[in-house]
Design a protein around this nucleic acid. Structure first.
Lengths: 241, 241
DNA sequence: CTGTCTCTTTACTCGCGGGTAAGATCGCCT
DNA sequence: AGGCGATCTTACCCGCGAGTAAAGAGACAG
């Protein structure tokens, strides 16, 4: 407590060359961090496999080859475990937004970039927890926290859509509805991805983005005449309807 | 037991004017059916509000102003209760497919008709149960049953898409991915619809369908007419690779 | 060797909730 | 006038799983 290094210089000198007595302690800290992460990842995997309520802390502990109290040494409650998994997932998406903000491209492309990483996050080991962390399973405080984060993501998507519509890179539409549709399709990946892993999360997101962009109504002007499988080129100048 | 009516005529005569002794019994049957439905609807509402695992049978009973064993008089287990709710939801969608099959319209329109009723079903009181009935919460037998029904719906959508592509009413695309995207967006309604009920389920589905059809990439100049501040020409080459 | 700090275990508590046993109640039939 | 079947209740059982108390096992310092 009171033995904190007197000066930054002294501390730095001790760190690098000599086996300072502080080194061991720092290493332990690091190891502890690693173990904590392992606990959270194990929890995510089990929640993913069997669902939150069908997973006991004994299960998670067994998976780590330790006992339940050990798990409790690293987290305070099952609820917090779920919350941490949720955070790990959502943080990937927040990072995607931060990166996209730097990008100097039309909003539509920035949106697509975000959606790709969104899809990857949902397909990740934390996807299930992120998508399905229900307020009903959580204390009011955590529920509020999660809701706020989800809302942030939602409004981020809406904002990109709105920008895109304004600058003309996105077809005019209701940003709220569009955001719900996009996020819904991507979120749902978490439900079926466990069974069918033939594609990576990013690939799925790519396929979805392509679909959302093009739309399902044929684009080529010949759409009304039964076009077999010609329409490989997108409509350029001409229009349908 | 042995006093079954000798002829249909006798039975019919007894039903209408006279208070046949069978009437009471039939009325009881009917009432029983009604009560059973009430139990299932109450369960759906509670599952919807608090989730399957956070709802106890005491909760459901209390909501009906009866006691737990009464609920068990109508239903054999909590699991079955969830299953019945699931069935009630999915049956609406199966009906939509049956009706659409009659329709003599392009596959794209039949698909849209199905999707509209799909959305309405998801937004109904059974939507949550239908969408979230997890195999993990159910016995293997029921899990298989539910999976089969879900798969039936999924393949129905894929089939309509495939038909549409073949006849040219739908832009060529991967039916499997497209079905996942569509169903995902609609299923997800169940997650946010409880909070935001500003639109009916059918209206939401309508909005989604419009969106899916048109796509988010601006269509040719014609659709551009409605855009207010004269958005510049969209660059063709700017699509992400 | 000894105190102490970190990490992990064994061995519990305890309430919740699914499910049941054994009647009460009530209307109907004979 | 009493039996009977359908309906609903009171009063219970019991296992599971979240969470905890308390003690052991190492590592390191002095």
């Amino acid at each position: 407590m009171n033995s904190r290094p007197a000066s930054p210089g002294a501390a730095a000198r001790a760190v690098l060359p000599a086996p300072s007595p502080w080194r061991a302690s720092r290493e332990r800290l690091r190891e502890r961090e690693l173990k904590r992460d392992a606990v959270i990842r194990a929890a995510a995997r089990e929640f993913n496999r069997k669902g939150y309520h069908n997973t006991s802390l004994d299960d998670i502990a067994a998976r780590l080859e330790v006992t339940k109290p050990t798990v409790y040494y690293y987290v305070t409650s099952k609820e917090q475990l779920l919350f941490e998994c949720f955070l790990a997932g959502i943080e990937q998406i927040r990072a995607a937004f931060r990166d996209a903000r730097e990008l100097k491209r039309p909003a539509r492309e920035r949106l697509n970039a975000v959606l790709r990483r969104y899809g990857a996050a949902v397909a990740s080991e934390f996807g299930w927890c992120m998508v399905r962390a229900e307020d009903q399973d959580l204390s009011p405080a955590m529920s509020r926290h999660i809701k706020a984060l989800k809302s942030e993501i939602d409004h981020g998507i809406r904002r990109l859509i709105r920008e895109g519509v304004q600058e003309g890179s996105i077809e005019p539409c209701d940003p709220k509805m569009a955001a719900f549709a996009l996020a819904g399709a991507l979120n749902w990946i978490a439900h079926w991805y466990r069974e069918d892993r033939s594609l990576s999360g990013a690939e799925i997101a790519d396929a979805f983005v392509t679909l959302f962009e093009a739309g399902m109504r044929p684009r080529s002007n010949a759409s009304r005449a039964s076009v077999r499988d010609r329409p490989r080129r997108r409509a350029r100048g001409s229009t349908t309807r």
